[in-house]
């Protein structure tokens, strides 16, 4: 119960933060903000002084700043995000259009990372200090030290430019997924693997692990019956926190590979100072984090009865 309340509070705080930040951004724009918003609504050709004045009065842009801020946040609460200043389309439509592309890329990347990372981590954690453990430590440290744009760059140079196996950019076919999702997955897997490894090593050192073997279970039976479920709890918790890393990766990777998703749109919106779009995308990303983590809270409650008490 309190978990749900604290997630709601978090969501509210996220909305207020983004609303305030975009409001300040709006006010700090060069030129007449009202004119720009009016142009966003009606198109540049249809804007006149009267339309700009109407917007100014509506948003309280000529009044005191705190009144205008309340007005701005009020629009936010009513889920009225306005229109893009660049295309003139409603922000909601633009985002709905891009969200699918980003979500499918992110999902493929997360699944790929889960196939690579945790199994290696669990095997390494069963033999701490062993050969696999040391190799994994070196590899994951190495990958963690490489920023994702650099991974993308290396993959492009090798797989697209040198070997010409895969397209460097584009969207639509399945093969377009390979490079961007691999770029994202490598970074995620490097961390997943460490989390799984540490969790496994910790669990294999717990009294209940030893006791399971003393009861007569084989190592395999112990792992299947007492290992996987226990490892999954910290791993899933961590996946929720990793959402932020994932989104940062998506922003960069979409820009590098020209992927028509929300991250790419966000960078464009910032670049062209399209404040309503910035607000909309930022809100979707921030609330996405809260939503994903709320779902993970529920999943953990289901997996670990101690947290439900």
């Amino acid at each position: 119960m309190s978990a749900i309340v604290s997630r709601l509070v978090q969501a509210l705080m996220v909305a207020i933060l983004i609303g305030t930040a975009t409001f300040v951004m709006m006010r700090s724009l060069p030129g007449d903000a009202a004119w720009r918003i009016a142009a966003g609504r009606y198109g540049y050709d249809n804007v006149d002084a009267a339309a700009a004045d109407a917007v100014r009065a509506e948003l309280g842009l000529d009044g005191p700043a705190h009144m205008a801020l309340l007005q701005w946040l009020g629009d936010l609460v009513r889920l009225d995000f306005g229109n893009s200043l660049v295309t003139g389309q409603p922000v909601v439509d633009e985002i709905a259009h891009q969200l699918g592309a980003s979500a499918s890329l992110a999902l493929v990347a997360v699944l790929l990372s889960l196939v690579i990372g945790p199994p290696l981590g669990i095997l390494a954690g069963l033999r701490p200090g062993g050969r696999l453990d040391r190799a994994l430590l070196v590899t994951s440290t190495g990958i963690k030290a490489v920023p994702q744009f650099l991974v993308a760059l290396v993959l492009i140079v090798i797989l697209a430019v040198q070997l010409r196996w895969l397209p460097a950019a584009g969207h639509g076919a399945a093969r377009h997924f390979i490079l961007p999702s691999l770029t994202l997955a490598l970074g995620l897997a490097a961390v997943n693997a460490r989390i799984a490894r540490d969790a496994m090593a910790r669990i294999a050192d717990m009294p209940f692990w030893r006791f399971a073997q003393w009861k007569g279970l084989s190592e395999r039976q112990t792992l299947l019956r007492h290992g996987l479920r226990n490892v999954s709890v910290p791993l899933i918790t961590y996946l929720g926190l990793q959402f932020v890393t994932l989104v940062e990766g998506v922003i960069i990777v979409e820009s590098v590979f020209g992927w028509p998703g929300i991250g790419h749109a966000l960078v464009h919106a910032i670049f062209s100072r399209d404040v309503p779009m910035v607000q909309g995308t930022a809100l979707v990303l921030g609330l996405g984090f809260v939503l994903v983590n709320a779902a993970i809270d529920l999943a953990i409650r289901h997996l670990d009865p101690r947290t439900a008490a």
Partner: peptide, 15 residues
């Protein structure tokens, strides 16, 4: 802090 944690760092920096 929790609210900031929910926002991707790059997004905040860009803003």
């Amino acid at each position: 802090a929790d609210a900031l944690l929910a926002l991707p760092g790059l997004l905040l920096i860009l803003m």
